[in-house]
């Protein structure tokens, strides 16, 4: 963090709001993140916490009419000239963002069928993506596409390339999506719940694939998921989001072994672990994720928080991120340098 040179993507105090018929949704409300080149950052949170909106803000894929980036900057280091640009400031429909999308920052989604066209073959779609960003001959692009399909573990790439997406299984489609995303060798891959729609054994395949491809292509990955297990398998660093804000971030080891925020602790405790606590009562987080339209004063988590204290937590601006140990941050009003978060058991 001290050397500014090192980051690939740096988000500062990002605020993305949606304007709905019922009111303003503060989907992302002051998110700051730093992604280093070649590393994997896991962004974890429950539905409605703003993790996907953060990703879409980076690529400027938000609906123009109903949403707006109110504040903040998204600094992205471009590949060749090492120039840093602020993605918030550029035209979301302009040439510049289009040359970045796909070529330098690629994205894969939860349900690949929605992002693959049903009327074109897999090959056509990958080749189109390649030709969009690179000046090469179509024949060369086709060979490259076959090579990409092979590198994502689709053995029958030569025949697969002429198939239509609906003929493939969910896992194969996700692999095609990954092949397409990586075809232009991006420096950042955003994976938005890439395994949520898949079976466990296929999920394991995709996780292994992403891990090996990351090494091979030397890219950074922003992994968005609600599944703590998936994060634990793949991420180097992790940021936990709740209601539009990051409540805790740090290295995987720091957050999983020494979680500080009551929400992180709650999440980790509420998941059953195989072979660990059979028939023991689980420790859920009480209540449920509040309505996104609500404006909560003070700490957004306080109403569900087991260690909540009226005086400290309510009626304030909310906590700031505190650096607890190098690169381990927590946003909790009860955090005390000497005692940790007061009230946390152990």
């Amino acid at each position: 963090m001290n050397e500014n040179e090192k980051y690939l993507l740096k988000i500062n105090n990002l605020k993305t709001y949606f304007y709905t018929l019922d009111g303003i949704v503060r989907a992302v409300d002051g998110v700051s993140l730093t992604l280093k080149p070649g590393k994997t950052m896991g962004l974890v949170g429950e539905s409605g916490c703003g993790k996907s909106v953060t990703a879409h803000s980076i690529l400027r894929l938000l609906p123009l009419k109903t949403s707006q980036i109110k504040e903040g900057e998204i600094l992205f280091r471009r590949r060749n000239d090492k120039e840093v640009i602020d993605l918030v400031k550029i035209n979301p429909q302009g040439k510049l963002i289009r040359s970045i999308r796909g070529k330098e920052i690629a994205i894969i989604f939860q349900e690949p069928m929605t992002s693959l066209s049903p009327v074109y073959t897999v090959g056509n779609q990958i080749i189109e993506a390649i030709l969009l960003h690179r000046q090469i001959e179509p024949q060369e692009a086709r060979e490259h596409a076959i090579q990409m399909l092979k590198s994502v573990g689709l053995g029958m790439a030569e025949s697969m390339i002429d198939e239509y997406p609906h003929r493939l299984s969910g896992g194969q489609r996700q692999r095609v999506m990954i092949a397409m995303a990586l075809s232009c060798n991006p420096s950042l891959l955003i994976a938005d719940e890439p395994t949520t729609a898949l079976d466990v054994t296929i999920q394991a395949q995709i996780i292994e694939l992403l891990k090996s491809l990351q090494k091979q292509f030397q890219m950074a990955v922003l992994m968005i998921t609600h599944n703590l297990g998936v994060i634990a398998e793949i991420a180097d660093e992790i940021a936990v989001m709740y209601l539009g804000r990051i409540v805790e971030s740090g290295s995987l080891k720091q957050v999983f072994e020494n979680p500080l925020h009551p929400y992180t602790i709650g999440l980790l405790k509420s998941v059953p672990i195989i072979g660990n606590q059979t028939k023991k009562r689980l420790a859920p987080i009480p209540g449920s994720v509040p309505d996104p339209l609500s404006v909560i004063e003070g700490c957004a988590f306080r109403l569900r928080c087991p260690v909540y204290k009226q005086k400290e937590c309510a009626g304030q601006e909310g906590a700031a991120m505190v650096e607890v140990e190098p690169e381990h941050y927590v946003r909790c009003l009860l955090y005390d340098r000497d005692e940790g978060v007061r009230g946390n058991e152990n």
Partner: peptide
């Protein structure tokens, strides 16, 4: 949601 699963279980 993860935090709610445990409640129902």
């Amino acid at each position: 949601d993860v935090s709610v699963q445990a409640q129902v279980i």
